[in-house]
Amino acid sequence: GTVHVGDKTYHFPTPDAAKKFAQEIAKKLNLQVTVKNGTWQVH
């Protein structure tokens, strides 16, 4: 899975790992999470 946070991109071996990371970052930074075609965006 891929997660975009601002101008950074993180790659994870599984979709679940990407989802978990995106949700944790969003919670920590009080941001929104959207997913499109398996790519997570934190914004």
Score class of each variant (00 low, 15 high):
V33K: 01
K28Y: 08
K8A: 07
V42L: 06
V3C: 04
H11R: 09
K20H: 10
Y10A: 01
T39R: 12
Y10Q: 01
F21L: 01
K36S: 12
K36A: 11
L29C: 10
V33G: 01
A17L: 13
H43Q: 12
A18N: 00
G38Q: 06
A17K: 08
H11W: 13
N30K: 07
D16A: 12
W40S: 03
Q32T: 14
A17V: 05
T39H: 15
A18Q: 00
Q41W: 15
T2S: 09
K20P: 00
V5E: 01
H43E: 12
Q23K: 09
K19D: 07
Q32C: 12
K20G: 05
L29P: 03
Y10C: 10
Q32Y: 06
K28G: 05
T9F: 13
V5P: 00
T14P: 01
P13I: 07
T14V: 03
Q23W: 14
T9K: 09
K28W: 07
K19Q: 13
G38N: 13
G1S: 11
D16S: 11
V42W: 03
A22T: 01
K20D: 09
L31K: 04
P13Y: 07
P13L: 10
Y10D: 00
E24S: 12
H4N: 09
Q32D: 08
F21S: 01
Y10L: 05
K28N: 06
V33T: 06
T39E: 15
F21K: 02
T14N: 09
T9A: 08
E24Y: 15
V33E: 02
A22I: 04
K27Q: 10
I25D: 00
Q41M: 13
F12T: 00
T14W: 04
N30G: 15
D16Y: 07
G38I: 02
A18E: 00
E24K: 13
K27R: 12
G1D: 07
V42Y: 02
K8F: 11
L29H: 14
T2A: 08
T34F: 07
T2E: 07
W40C: 06
K36C: 14
V35H: 14
T34I: 09
Q41P: 03
K36T: 12
A26K: 02
G38M: 05
F21Q: 01
Y10K: 01
K19R: 13
I25V: 10
E24H: 13
T9L: 12
Q23A: 08
N30R: 06
I25M: 09
K27S: 10
K20C: 13
E24W: 15
A22W: 02
W40L: 11
A17H: 07
